[in-house]
Simulated scan of single mutants.
Amino acid sequence: MSRPVRSVLYIPASKERALEKARDLPTDAIIFDLEDAVSPEEKDRARDLLAEELTAQDFGARLRIVRVNGLDTPWGAADLAVFAGHPGVDAVLVPKVNAPAVLDAVAAVVAKPLWAMLETAQGCLNAAAIAAHPRLEGMVMGTNDLAKELGARFRADRLPLIAGLGACVLAARAAGKVVVDGVYNAFKDEAGLRAECEQGRDMGFDGKTLIHPAQLAIANEVFAPSDAEVTLARRMIEAYRAARAQGQGVAVLDGRIVENMHVANATTILAKASAIAALAV
């Protein structure tokens, strides 16, 4: 089981206090943002500040992802020059990936694993080709930009975005890549956040991107296996093993059939629970 990404918190790279606080937050991953969260006049200072912080500070087991500016901007090439091989960076997040060629251009100068922002109609339509890129490890939904481009209205059920979200989940799963849901903007609305996290979890997302530390607890809870799920997974595995020992191909547990596919899913649940527990050590 790869490291969990239940919670992926955006941190503006220009905010020294936010960078300092991030070292102690219970987030599985941090996206250090040089793009949308940083004004044009702050871009150069933010780049230097982030490079220094990632060199000097320990962010523990958290996955450290840097979202750079696009190569079609005045800052993208300089961002890549600094973070292409930076020892404090686990991955580089490329914005507005519309096609694999965008990743090809970045991969030519970056040694780190790549992540891709899927935030345009074209990107969602090309999700399968993007997900199959050999240097790509993860995909992040940019739901605000996607909704804007689609001209979609806000709905709590996100129905206008479902086709794009689903296409990206399918692509990620087909290619064996991580895929993380977009942000929930109303950070004080806990009920709305929980509902959207549950929707994303049920669709197959590995976790959710977040804009405020107050959102961490709910995302971490929703995208982790519950105690009941862990208990049931263990019982399924035990029941199947007992059935196989008796020469049977399937088991029956609580009135339901347990086959090999259910055991595989149960094993995944236990591996995820174990990986999450290891983060707390």
Results as ranks from 00 to 15, higher is better:
V102G: 13
D189P: 12
P26E: 02
K208Y: 01
I11G: 12
E137Q: 12
F223V: 10
R234L: 14
P225C: 11
I31L: 01
A13S: 05
W115P: 04
I162N: 10
A195Y: 11
R3Q: 15
A156P: 15
M1G: 03
G255W: 04
F59Q: 06
G123C: 10
R241Y: 07
D72V: 08
L80T: 04
M141V: 15
P95L: 15
K177Q: 08
D254R: 03
A77G: 08
W75M: 07
A13Y: 00
E190N: 10
A84C: 00
A280T: 05
K148M: 11
H262K: 07
L103I: 14
G76T: 03
V179L: 11
H212K: 09
A116K: 02
I31E: 00
A78Q: 13
I269L: 01
E229R: 11
V222N: 11
I269E: 00
D189I: 15
F154C: 14
L150F: 09
R45H: 03
E149Y: 04
F32G: 02
F83Y: 01
K96T: 02
V281D: 14
L270H: 01
V102H: 09
R173V: 11
A152S: 09
F59D: 04
F32T: 03
D72L: 06
P4K: 05
N98T: 12
M236I: 07
L216I: 11
D189L: 06
C124Q: 13
V263M: 00
D36Y: 05
A172K: 10
A101D: 13
R47N: 01
A195N: 07
A99M: 06
A37N: 03
K272V: 06
A275T: 01
